[in-house]
Design a binder for these strands. Structure first.
Lengths: 237, 237
DNA sequence: TAACAAACAGACTGTACGTTCTGTTTTATT
DNA sequence: AATAAAACAGAACGTACAGTCTGTTTGTTA
């Protein structure tokens, strides 16, 4: 862990150590005129990752800016430079997570056949949503009720996601020679909700096996609602 | 001695020490001596209701003790007398909610035939879980990750609920001449999770109709998983 | 190179929060 | 009645938080 056990007095014994002739602990022997764009992006990513970790571990109300800064091993100053207010960081988290999740989905689309992909959808959703980043988004969603700015932003992002996500699924279904149910959107929403609920429950219950069983049930249900996607079915009356 | 601050004493115009022969600020007329057990229970209930309302409306981190006291129209002093710490109140909320919810379920069991009850289960679950009290419990669940005492208490209560709840369902199924599926527990958990997820989503999306559609899908799924419970559609189409 | 701007570091501050404390009113007990 | 205890009221307190500020280092540009 990390010690934050420093006396508040000026411990500035003689800290004038700049321009080290030798880079000590950093990249060895390689001079690095790191562009500031890179530096910015680095600390931003560190902060976002740390925020996600904290949100998933201790929840929103216990995720203080100081805690995030420590987790990210970033100074308070650097943090406020990149994200002046806590909200700015939370907003960045939401955007980053949705970006990454979209990438994740896109990858699974690319590497699987349409039929296969649909079959695996519940498991894929579970992979994405039950991760810390998924929990973090839930936390921010809930906390956004006391913050209009955050709520508005979240809503717009969410709307985008929902539309494109269901659009994808419809396309995939058609690629597999299927058509969506008339209540396809409700089904989709139900599945997302179920996965969310399960990941919530997994938060403070160690029963991972039980939760995965429920995901399996969800897969089975998918197979029933969209019969042709079931694992074994080529002929039937 | 501590009378140093009366900067804005508009109410307390002059001295104290009066034993007014006429009760001026007293409640209108008939003031029967309320037993203190009743008084205690009243303010406790007011506080619990207010806490539920606040949790559901603004979330845990924005639910301050002051806000709850105002919502309950109870003085800070009375509040701390009943619940010395914030945690005490949160614990009380959890217990009260589970008590009330159990009562709700029991009532629906009593007034419906077994078959009917099973059919309506998703809707009943939605009724219970999507209420403010259901949201409040979710909020406390999430916040409990940064508070061991709360987490432990919650876990034990939850464990009780889960066992008795599934037990009930199995009994109901048998009353209807059905047997549970081997993965019945996973199904049950999945349904609870789905309802929770849906109610979460309903929090910051006004689309109540859409959510109810998803609940309907859930009912349909229940009918498929437990065929005999499906609504008999003798002559429809 | 110099001058500037961006990135960083960390102390400082106002405030809002949960808790504690002192004092008052209401009910119970004798 | 007197006395004690419970319920209530609200000020006072310490603290931890988010936001701000001043100063330093590092990269960019003229």
């Amino acid at each position: 862990m990390k010690k934050s056990n420093e006396p508040k007095a000026a411990v500035r014994t003689s800290p004038r150590k700049q321009v080290p002739a030798k880079p000590l602990t950093k990249k060895p022997s390689r001079r690095k005129p790191k562009p500031q764009a890179q530096r910015s992006a680095d600390t931003r990513n560190r902060l976002i990752d740390a925020a996600i970790a904290c949100l998933a571990r201790v929840g929103y109300s216990a995720t203080t800016v100081t805690l995030v800064a420590e987790e990210a091993e970033v100074s308070r100053g650097a943090m406020t430079h990149q994200y002046p207010a806590k909200n700015d960081l939370m907003l960045a988290v939401v955007e980053a997570v949705y970006e990454r999740d979209g990438e994740h989905y896109r990858r699974t689309v690319a590497e699987k056949s349409p039929m296969r992909w649909i079959q695996d959808l519940p498991a894929t959703m579970w992979d994405v949503i039950s991760q810390p980043s998924g929990i973090a988004v839930i936390e921010i969603m809930l906390a956004s009720r006391s913050d209009r700015e955050l709520a508005d932003k979240l809503r717009s992002v969410q709307r985008n996601i929902d539309m494109t996500a269901h659009q994808w699924i419809v396309e995939r279904l058609e690629s597999a020679g299927l058509r969506d149910r008339p209540d396809g959107e409700a089904v989709h929403r139900l599945f997302v909700a179920a996965i969310r609920g399960l990941s919530l429950e997994g938060l403070f219950r160690r029963d991972r096996a039980g939760v995965e069983k429920s995901v399996a049930v969800l897969s089975e249900i998918l197979g029933i609602l969209y019969p042709a996607t079931a694992v074994r079915s080529s002929s039937q009356s």
